[in-house]
Amino acid sequence: MIDMFQFFGDEVLLDSRVLHERLVTDAAREGLLDVAYHTVDSPVGPLLLAATEQGLVKVAFDRQGHDAALAELAAVISPRILRAPSRFDPLARQLDEYFAGERQAFDVPLDLRLARGFRRAVLEHLTDIEYGRTESYAQVAAAAGSPKAVRAVGTACALNPVPVVLPCHRVVRSDGSYGQYAGGEEAKRILLTMEAA
């Protein structure tokens, strides 16, 4: 009797997954899906991935609060948000390759609407910092066109909407110490150690 109930439960679960995928497909086709999201496991903890039609708009660490990140997206972009795991298959594959040491840069479209002005200039520079290398906050400030804006670089990195993909973890203090990181100091250490190997 328990086996039959378990089998029945699996059938219901399978049907709900199919229905959810249909909902996501229909919502996207009708222009009703503004933000899709998915959560993936990683060596730095669960990562929330969120994307618009333009591209990846948010990566959030567990310690930042995935619900808080979704609430921010609902307030700033649109409340029309659905979990859509299959939409993130290419990025999930690239993240797996990155964490396995087989990928040094990401090839996904980005939607950087959550960053403007100098913060955006800082984010655009981050891809110039090569895998396995670091730059100081002062070096990034100079590269972004405002050599005295060292603190603003720290803020831009702390508010980076797509960490890991845009590698703000490669920005460190002038003395080489890690500095702050949205994923926490341990996550930053893991990423920099992995890239240095």
Rank of each mutant, 00 (worst) to 15 (best):
K148F: 09
P163N: 03
P147N: 03
Y131E: 11
A152H: 12
A144K: 01
E135F: 02
S136Y: 01
P163E: 06
L166P: 03
V153Y: 02
A141S: 08
A144R: 01
R113C: 00
V122W: 08
V140Q: 14
P161M: 10
L166I: 10
D128H: 12
K148Y: 14
V150Y: 06
A121W: 03
F118R: 13
L112F: 04
L126H: 13
A144N: 00
V108M: 06
G154T: 07
S146E: 09
P147L: 06
G132F: 05
R119P: 11
L112Y: 07
A142F: 02
A121G: 00
F118P: 13
L123K: 07
I129L: 15
V164H: 00
A121P: 00
N160D: 11
V165T: 06
G132C: 08
P163W: 01
R116N: 14
S136V: 00
P163V: 05
A142H: 12
C168M: 01
H125R: 15
R119N: 15
P109F: 05
V162F: 08
A141M: 04
A115L: 09
L114R: 14
S136H: 07
D111L: 05
T134Y: 02
R113P: 00
R119L: 12
S146R: 09
P109K: 02
S146A: 06
R120E: 03
P163F: 05
L114F: 07
A142R: 10
E124V: 15
A143E: 00
A115G: 09
R120G: 07
G117N: 11
R120P: 05
C168E: 07
V150Q: 10
A115H: 10
R133I: 05
V165I: 12
A156C: 02
H125N: 15
V140L: 04
D128L: 12
V108T: 13
I129N: 07
L126W: 00
L110P: 11
G132R: 11
E135K: 08
V150K: 11
T127V: 14
V153S: 07
S136W: 09
E130D: 07
E130K: 11
T127I: 15
L110D: 14
L166D: 02
R113Q: 00
L123I: 10
S136Q: 09
P147M: 09
L126D: 03
H125L: 15
V164N: 06
A138T: 15
R151W: 07
G145L: 10
P167Q: 14
R120F: 02
R113A: 09
R119D: 15
P161C: 04
T134I: 13
V162I: 12
S146K: 08
G145D: 07
A158D: 09
R116K: 11
G117C: 04
P109G: 08
I129G: 05
N160M: 14
S136N: 12
A138W: 13
D128K: 12
L114A: 04
T127C: 10
P167W: 14
P163D: 00
P147W: 00
V164M: 09
E124M: 12
A156M: 02
H125P: 01
I129C: 03
V164R: 00
L114Y: 08
A156E: 01
D128I: 11
R119K: 15
G145R: 04
A138V: 09
A142K: 10
V150H: 10
T134R: 15
L110S: 11
T127P: 04
Y137Q: 06
V164P: 03
A143N: 09
L123R: 14
A142N: 06
K148G: 12
E124G: 01
P167H: 14
